[in-house]
Nucleic acid binder design. Structure first.
Length: 178
DNA sequence: ATGGGGATCGTCT
DNA sequence: GACGATCCCCATC
């Protein structure tokens, strides 16, 4: 997991193809392969860390490899993996995964939506994996979260502008498996 | 296929 | 007191 100590844009690209899971109370894994990410740093106006450390974003300023969960639009949770050195305020937003494990559980949490729509958005994947503010600060090394290297062959990755932000739109810090 | 608006509340100004 | 790293439903084309 040493690569998580690199800068967020580098990590965001590297994470495409990795597998991200939560461990359920019964021990089973729910999740799939990471297909879309975005990078955020403290020098980036669009980032929560831009204005410094606050109670909400303090995990972003901690060591790499921990989970930063935030609540937005009054109803949605989104999940990040902290990167860089401690104090940097860098993180990678997980925007989409390809669901592979515990499909039935995810369908139940997502109102039986069709499989392609289970985890194809940052708030959707949190809903499917039941990630909430209670998970803020957990490690990606378990027990709650598990991050596994790619098994399949490296895929093609496209870099584009980020989504849903109003400032610093020009940066090509969104990465998508193609 | 595309676009507009509502839901809903924590966080920071 | 304003707004957001969003999603979903409905209208219209």
């Amino acid at each position: 997991m040493d690569f998580l100590e690199n800068n967020a844009p580098t990590v965001a690209k590297s994470l495409i193809g990795w597998k991200f899971f939560v461990r359920e109370p019964d021990g089973s894994l729910t999740g799939g392969m990471i297909t879309e990410t975005e990078a955020y740093t403290s020098e980036d106006v669009a980032s929560h860390s831009f204005r410094g450390k606050t109670p909400r974003n303090e995990v972003m300023f901690g060591p790499a490899g921990h989970i930063y969960v935030y609540f937005t639009y009054g109803m949605h949770w989104c999940v990040n993996i902290v990167t860089g050195d401690s104090g940097d305020g860098q993180a990678v937003l997980l925007r989409a995964i390809q669901p592979t494990h515990n499909l039935a559980t995810m369908r139940q949490r997502r109102a039986n939506r069709p499989d392609p729509e289970l985890t194809n958005g940052p708030a959707k994947l949190c809903q499917a994996l039941a990630i909430t503010g209670q998970d803020n600060g957990q490690s990606v090394d378990g027990p709650r979260f598990i991050l596994k290297p790619p098994t399949a062959k490296q895929q093609n990755i496209m870099a584009t502008k980020r989504i849903g932000i109003s400032q610093d739109k020009h940066r090509l810090w969104r990465f998508i498996a193609t």
